[in-house]
Amino acid sequence: MELRVRETMIGVAGASLGTAVLLLVPAQVPGATIAAIGDMRSPAFFPVLAAIIVLAGATGIVLAQRRAEPPAAEAMPTRPWAAMAAVIAGGTAVPFLGIYAGLLVAMLGIGVVLRTRPLAFAITTAVSLSAVHLLFARTLRVVFPDPTLPLPSWWPH
């Protein structure tokens, strides 16, 4: 994608965010309006100010693209998105399968994406899950959520 197009899209996204915040102010801050920018005592003052700063930054980004033709932007690789999908899958699995299964899903996905060697992956997984259990569950007594799916009694959670 051409760099100028990408940068303009960043600016448009920023402007959309800032505008959305301004439009949401009356609904999300009871009794407030965009005019709260003139009243520093209003709870909406700070969010409105922040939205204006976001809009200013976004405008600056778009205006900066009016200069000479920049070089092409580097294409976004796909493997990071696969890594993100693996972590999201793991996070999604936690409430249904428990913390250990959820972590295993995430770690497995990351290992596949990063092409971790099987032996190194096995060692790392064993160490990680043991560390989580010993440190968080046993020592720090963190209570992990129970899985919602009906699972056998031996299922670790």
């Binding site: 972590v87 972590l103 770690m107 990351i110 990063l114 971790t116 997984t125 209570v143 992990f144």
Partner: peptide, 23 residues
């Protein structure tokens, strides 16, 4: 130590650590 071997560990500790802050 290859980073690729440590990344799954980082992910596990990061997710559990994030959960542990407020359970």
């Amino acid at each position: 130590i290859p980073r690729s071997a440590l990344s799954p560990l980082v992910v596990a500790v990061a997710l559990v650590g994030a959960y542990a802050v407020n359970s």
